[in-house]
């Protein structure tokens, strides 16, 4: 079976600095794959490279078995969509929710935009009361719901998630994570999720890759991580750190 997303030997370099070094991974249709690492690990660069926003030096990316070229075609964006980290920065400040959701439909020439916008808002639990608000009239969690609605409105099969909850409060984070799981179940989506938080990744993903300095450290099943069956020291350090502070005796 062809994987939904296949990456082979991907290398990304800015000037001479290698942000990604020969990364390979495969995500099956309907699977959720996590990328964990600290800042500078290249985990976000990987998402950028998939969307065509990072300079790929070597390696290939394929979606549903077909290789992507240098530039992305319009059809690509129907298949792959992304939710950004900062809900305060990812919505155009001068556009209403309505306009934000209309834009992708207009670009791809959908006719039934009215119905689709209402459906998308309902799906992310906002309802049509939010349709004509501006982003500054929304809370962080509501903004992220709008961003998810915008990503889903083109009915993609793959969703890239770049730390979608790290800017949110813990209680709102739970709501957004639940929403993401819900839409994934309903639509059979494939997730590629980036986070610095091991707990979130093990909660959301079946498989994950730990990254450091643009390289793969190790690849695990979420159940291995939960049982703390890890082989590398770096991963072990991350596990210890995520448990919180332990006071020196």
């Amino acid at each position: 079976m062809t994987p939904a997303l296949g990456i082979m030997g991907l290398t990304v370099a800015y000037d001479r600095h290698k942000a990604l070094d020969r990364i390979s991974l495969e995500v099956e249709q309907g699977q959720s794959f996590g990328l964990v690492g600290e800042s500078g690990s290249g985990k976000s660069t990987l998402l950028k490279a998939i969307t065509g926003l990072a300079p790929v030096e070597a390696g290939t990316i394929s979606v549903d078995g077909s290789k992507l070229g240098r530039s992305r075609e319009k059809a690509f964006y129907r298949k792959v969509q992304m939710v950004f980290q900062d809900p305060y920065g990812s919505l155009h400040p001068r556009q209403t929710v309505d306009r934000l959701l209309l834009e992708p439909l207009a670009v791809h020439g959908f006719a039934d935009s009215e119905a689709r916008i209402n459906r998308a808002l309902d799906e992310v639990g906002l309802g049509s009361g939010f349709r004509f608000r501006y982003p500054h009239q929304l809370s962080g969690g509501q903004r992220q719901r709008v961003a998810i609605a915008r990503a889903l409105i083109l009915e993609p099969s793959i969703l890239l998630l770049d730390e979608p909850t790290s800017a949110l409060d813990a209680s709102v984070q739970a709501e957004v994570l639940n929403l993401l799981e819900q839409v994934r179940r309903d639509r059979g989506l494939t997730f590629l999720m980036v986070s610095h938080d091991l707990a979130i990744i093990t909660h959301m993903c079946e498989r994950l890759m730990v990254m450091q300095n643009g390289e793969e450290v190790e690849r695990l099943d979420a159940s291995d991580l939960a049982a703390r069956r890890v082989s590398r020291d770096y991963t072990r350090n991350l596990l210890v750190a995520s448990a919180g502070f332990v006071r020196a005796p």
Binding site: A170, S171, Q173, A174, E175, L177, N178, E181, Q182, L198, A199, I200, T202, H203, M204, L225, A226, A227, R228, L239, S242
Partner: peptide, 22 residues
Amino acid sequence: RGLLDCMPKIGEQRHPLPVLER
């Protein structure tokens, strides 16, 4: 209690996560 509860924890399977009802 809600704040403590709603965070995902390694090694726990709670789907969906409990949500804080304000």
